[in-house]
Simulated assay, not measured.
Amino acid sequence: MPRKFLKRFMPDIHKLNRYGVLKPFGTLAHDPNLWHLNRRSAAGAFAVGIFFAFMPMPFQMVAAAAFAILFRVNLPLSVALVWISNPITMPPMLYGSYRVGAFLLNQPSEPFLFELSWAWFQASISSIVPALLLGCIVVGSVFSGASYLAVRKIWRQAVQSAWDERIKLRRQRLRELKAEFKQRRQNLRDEAD
């Protein structure tokens, strides 16, 4: 079941409180619904976490936590999913988002070299940043929605599979009990004769 798989990776709220990780959110982060894991909260956490993974902004985890609290979805899962964007995956994610944004704005995608400097930012703010931001929002929304639907479908299939297995085991047990009852009845008849 998905719950058992995801629970293995979830942090303990008491440990997080001890280290003061949740202090910026005050009492809002202590809502029990933010820590429960069910189909709705897991799917919502995937949607929030993956959306913010595509956003080119500092403190993505804080934004994901704030929106997890706002939408009352699983907080640790939404924050953990932000790490899909890491130093290895971020360049292709941003470049792909930029290409989508340039396509939507109907402008040619320009080759550029990224520099972590104020001068580069000022020079590219009018040409690259609008396409990048639009692309990140569109691509993040598409992947966020797709992950929401996929998690709900996978969770439902896992629950349905578990129910089917229970029904199969119950039917098998019922057949065994009927066969045992039939055998006992036959033994009683044989003893009576």
Rank of each mutant, 00 (worst) to 15 (best):
Val21Ala: 12
Val21Trp: 06
Lys23Asp: 15
Lys23His: 12
Pro24Trp: 05
Leu28Arg: 14
Asn33Trp: 09
Asn33Met: 11
Trp35Phe: 08
His36Gln: 13
Asn38Ile: 10
Arg39Asp: 09
Ser41Tyr: 04
Ala42Gly: 10
Ala43Trp: 01
Ala47Gly: 07
Val48Trp: 00
Val48Asp: 04
Gly49Ser: 07
Gly49His: 01
Gly49Thr: 04
Phe51Trp: 02
Phe51Lys: 00
Met57Gln: 12
Pro58Val: 14
Gln60Met: 11
Gln60Pro: 06
Val62Cys: 04
Val62Gln: 04
Ala63Ser: 14
Phe67Trp: 13
Phe67Lys: 04
Leu70Ile: 13
Leu70Arg: 14
Arg72Glu: 09
Asn74His: 12
Leu75Met: 10
Leu75Thr: 05
Leu75Gly: 05
Ser78Tyr: 02
Val79Asn: 01
Ala80Cys: 07
Ala80Gly: 15
Trp83Tyr: 14
Ile84Asn: 03
Ser85Arg: 00
Thr89Ala: 11
Met93Arg: 01
Met93Ile: 15
Leu94Ile: 13
Tyr95Ser: 08
Gly96Phe: 05
Gly96Pro: 07
Leu104Ser: 08
Pro108Asp: 14
Pro108Cys: 05
Phe112Cys: 07
Leu113Met: 11
Glu115Lys: 05
Leu116Asn: 15
Leu116Glu: 13
Ser117Arg: 04
Trp120Ser: 04
Trp120Lys: 05
Ala123Trp: 01
Ser126Glu: 14
Ser126Phe: 06
Val129Asp: 03
Pro130Phe: 10
Ala131Pro: 05
Cys136His: 02
Ile137Asp: 04
Val138Pro: 02
Gly140Tyr: 00
Ser141Met: 09
Phe143Val: 05
Ser144Tyr: 01
Gly145Ala: 11
Ala150Leu: 15
Val151Ala: 04
Ile154Asp: 03
Arg156Tyr: 10
